[in-house]
Design a protein around this nucleic acid. Structure first.
Length: 110
DNA sequence: ACGATGACGTGAC
DNA sequence: AGTCACGCCATCG
């Protein structure tokens, strides 16, 4: 990584950083917004590299089920606490009313 | 250059 | 309704 050229990470970071507080988005939504319809895995991969960027609220990015899949990557329940601090409710590593808090770039940025 | 993997998504059984 | 398997794009060994 760290290639001179901007990899998809930059695009993902840009979108994730646009996520309003108290809102969450899914990997598929970002991938779709970037044009990678089924590139949800790439978004997750980009998030893996986002560890070098503390300004990226990766905790606001969850899978389509609203489950904190990357919770283990944050280290403990850091991700859950961050989401709860934003007013979200987490139950069993799952976001309550996930659809209600779901934030879609193509819809909100429309 | 090839193969394997990965914080997912959707379809099918 | 729950569970299994396959597919997608990009990066790493």
């Amino acid at each position: 990584m760290a290639t001179d050229k901007a990899s998809i990470f930059e695009d993902v970071y840009a979108v994730v950083r646009l996520i309003p507080q108290g809102r969450v988005t899914s990997y598929g939504a970002i991938a779709n917004f970037l044009g990678k319809k089924s590139g949800a895995r790439l978004v997750g991969w980009a998030m893996n590299a986002c560890h070098a960027d503390p300004s990226i609220p990766a905790h606001r990015v969850v899978n389509s089920t609203g489950m904190l899949t990357g919770k283990g990557f944050f280290g403990g329940n850091r991700m859950q606490e961050l989401l709860e601090a934003e007013g979200l409710v987490i139950k069993n590593d799952k976001i309550v009313d996930f659809k209600k808090y779901l934030w879609i770039p193509s819809e909100e940025l429309l």
